[in-house]
């Protein structure tokens, strides 16, 4: 048998790759690629609309002024931006200790079954329809305790939505802290709580901060629960016990209105919301990535 110079490629027929198999591979490759292209382009289209229609609406008054009465052009959505920030901040005050506690519990005290149960419950809360959370907070606070729609009720609804996000994201961040650091601390004779507070949390600080801010941003995009709790407001209001405006509510109210100027402001508000979330998501990724390397 000669080997030298053999450039033909001959394989016994039983082991050749049939044309049908080749065609199937090609067709499926193309189909899978097309699915990716479809997914990516759909999402590009949506972002594109938000940017193109939202940008023209942005000006100084958009960020500083309050909404005008029906049919009057101009004005801005400042109360909604401030309301979203204030409710986000109050929600963070409620959700961060709980979420952080759950994360430390799950990551540092891997107490087996209990840690798993807490994590599972967090996932279930994350999966709740946000409108059901709104109904709960309405029944819990708005109906009797406060007696009216209020910013703090909106904040509580957002807090319920934030808790699982903080808990799970921070847990991921804490897991990126090398266990060698913990062991080094324990080996120095430091008690466990000091190791967690002085070594683990500071090491993961940047990640924790970004996770919290991202959770605020994610919750700040919620609309349905706020409709049932904060209600909305066209005036500046910083009193958490009274109805409060929020960006998503403003988007909804403007979108279903009959005025072009308000439609433009709805797109503008969407752009602000999406941009904030995108920036925070990117920074969270940069933080977790640099840590994991």
């Amino acid at each position: 048998m000669t080997v030298a110079g053999a450039t033909r490629f001959v394989v016994p027929e039983s082991h050749r790759v049939t044309a049908r198999r080749r065609l199937a591979a090609l067709v499926m490759g193309v189909l899978l690629g097309a699915a990716t292209l479809l997914a990516a382009s759909l999402l590009v289209v949506i972002i594109g609309y938000v940017v193109v229609r939202g940008l023209p609406a942005l000006n100084l008054a958009f960020f500083t002024d309050r909404p005008r009465p029906f049919g009057v052009e101009g004005g801005g959505v400042a109360p909604a931006i401030l309301g979203s920030l204030e409710m986000g901040a109050i929600a963070a005050l409620i959700a961060v200790p709980i979420g952080l506690g759950a994360a430390i519990f799950a990551s540092e005290y891997r107490a087996g079954r209990w840690a798993g149960a807490v994590r599972f419950c967090a996932e279930l809360i994350a999966g709740l329809p946000s409108v059901a959370v709104g109904v709960f907070v309405w029944a819990f606070l708005v109906r009797s305790v406060i007696g009216s729609y209020a910013g703090v009720a909106g904040a509580l609804a957002l807090a319920v939505i934030m808790i699982p996000i903080v808990a799970r994201t921070v847990e991921e961040v804490l897991r990126l802290v090398p266990s060698g650091l913990r062991e080094a601390g324990l080996a120095l004779g430091a008690p466990r709580w000091r190791v967690i507070l002085m070594i683990v949390l500071p090491t993961a600080r940047a990640g924790i901060v970004t996770a919290v801010v991202l959770a605020v941003a994610r919750a700040a995009g919620e609309t349905a629960p706020l409709m049932l709790t904060a209600l909305g407001n066209v005036f500046f209001n910083f009193d958490p016990l009274r109805p409060m405006a929020a960006l998503p509510l403003q988007i909804y109210q403007y979108a279903v209105s009959p005025y072009d100027d308000w439609h433009a402001k709805a797109w503008g508000s969407s752009l602000v919301l999406v941009a904030a979330i995108a920036v925070l998501a990117v920074s969270l990724r940069l933080v977790t990535r640099s840590r994991s390397r």
Partner: peptide, 11 residues
């Protein structure tokens, strides 16, 4: 894109 608020999809 999975993070985008549902109100934006609604709009």
């Amino acid at each position: 894109l999975a993070y985008i608020p549902s109100i934006v999809y609604g709009l």
